[in-house]
Amino acid sequence: MNQNFLERLSECVEFGKINLASPYPPQMKGLPGADEVTKEALEAGVTPTEILNDALINAMNKVGQKFSENKIFVPQMLLSAKAMSASMIHLKPFFANGTVKRRGIFILGTVFGDLHDIGKNLLGMMVEGAGWEVIDLGIDVKIEKFVEKVKEYPDAVVGISALLTTTMVNIQPVIEAIRKVAPQTKIIIGGAPLSAEYAASIGADAYGKNPQEGVSWLDSIAS
């Protein structure tokens, strides 16, 4: 019984079926989506942990795999993430009372002086789909704002992006300021002018060449 709910929910997330009304994917038109199936599953006694791990994260892993193999594009992956979010709404009370836990908290932002954020936004959506709570600080994020959030969430992982040769140099003082208040904080950086060598030279823990690499690295430190 439980397995049936989990399989149906997993299918909804894998193919991006958000709710009964959503027209996508065409082959699931008119069927209940992640929203309805999650509600039914909880009412039938499926545990929130089973829903999170065996259906949602499992499905998003399959989606990530298909994307890595160029079998789907970002919009399909984002619809899956939206389906997952529709399901997560029903799990909120269980996160609040500690019955289930997210994989971690990920704070991300575009470094001060820089306005480019499409890659950062993409990463944020993919990380959320991988079961993390994402706190997106936006663009042109000042050092103080990163520090303030790290103080608020001391166990969080931080992601910082830059697209310009004249703003990539702003990442180092952010890392230094974060390390002063929370030396153990794991930090990943990304953006066109950056590299793994540069990341190492300024004290970052990792460099993500693309959003998929970022998600893989987060998965590796969460497990």
């Binding site: 310009l164 040769t165 004249t166 140099v169 702003n170 002018p193």
Partner: peptide, 8 residues
């Protein structure tokens, strides 16, 4: 053209 990595 643009600048190499440096602050402004």
């Amino acid at each position: 053209f643009t600048l190499p990595p440096m602050s402004i």
